[in-house]
Design a protein around this nucleic acid. Structure first.
Lengths: 142, 142
DNA sequence: GCTTGAACCTCTAGCAGCTGGAGGAGGTAT
DNA sequence: ATACCTCCTCCAGCTGCTAGAGGTTCAAGC
């Protein structure tokens, strides 16, 4: 039986985060000692490891919830799980594409900045005048 | 003189967002009509355009605040502005590198999934067993 | 058995960067 | 005058945690 602190150490999670996952129903309510402290077994360890690994791959908690549900029903088709992974892959690819456009633009700004006074600074100039910007980055935060 | 709605349209910003920028001191308090409605001029339009463009390039609001301050002092050296841009570039490059690692891993998962039952699903299997994962993605959310 | 001291408990608030809604007042066209 | 749209303020919520206050429990050492 693991304390929450030991579970945290084993999975590289913060204690608070584990309690948070419990609060939002991603982790089950564990057993407790007479004094009210949480105690965890192997199942919970596996589940948390699953969650953390999925988080590392960028899945949202909602997606992870779906994946966990699917994982709990071993007889169902795996098509749903694959679809979630493909969706995640598409999102990652979109974000990469967007960041690469930003990188290009930032590189150009930095390269062209001659280092004089702010009045002539290319960095500020490009920011001021959108038309000098070659990239068409429409969305924010994607 | 522009209403907040027209300013929003011209800059591709939501009305609420403009008020939010004002609240956090990123946009100045504009003039008001007798009835208390905000009215904006060219300066504010330029400033908001600057902010939005910088946001599109991924700068944080704090970085934008610095850039705006620098932009207001045209005599100072532009080195600070260039440093902020370089810092942003580095961050973008780090995020790209991380996302590319995720992309590789996700592609592999999706490719290997034969589409049977969830019990044999490669997607779920990889998530369950970290050791099957080739990528070393330590940090979350970077 | 008793005392530390670390680790646990609950609860609340905060981070970025907005976004949405409630409930009401202002502005404009007919 | 009336309709209708936009504007106002204030507050709550989103994601995914993280930090802190203030108090309890547990395990080890004596």
């Amino acid at each position: 039986m693991l304390t929450i602190g030991n579970l945290a150490k084993k999975t590289g999670t913060k204690v608070q985060t584990i309690r948070y996952y419990e609060q939002i129903g991603l982790m089950p309510e564990p057993g407790r000692t007479a004094g009210g402290q949480r105690r965890y077994g192997e199942d919970e360890l596996d589940r948390l490891a699953f969650v953390r690994h999925a988080r590392q791959l960028g899945f949202t908690l909602e997606a992870i919830r779906e994946l966990l549900d699917l994982s709990d029903e071993p007889d169902r088709s795996c098509e749903n799980a694959a679809a979630i992974a493909r969706r995640q892959l598409r999102q990652v690819e979109q974000r990469i594409a967007r960041l690469e456009a930003l990188r290009t633009e930032l590189k150009r700004m930095v390269r062209e900045c001659a280092g004089g006074q702010t009045a002539d600074c290319r960095v500020l100039e490009v920011l001021r005048d959108h038309s000098e910007c070659l990239t068409d980055h429409d969305e924010i935060g994607a």
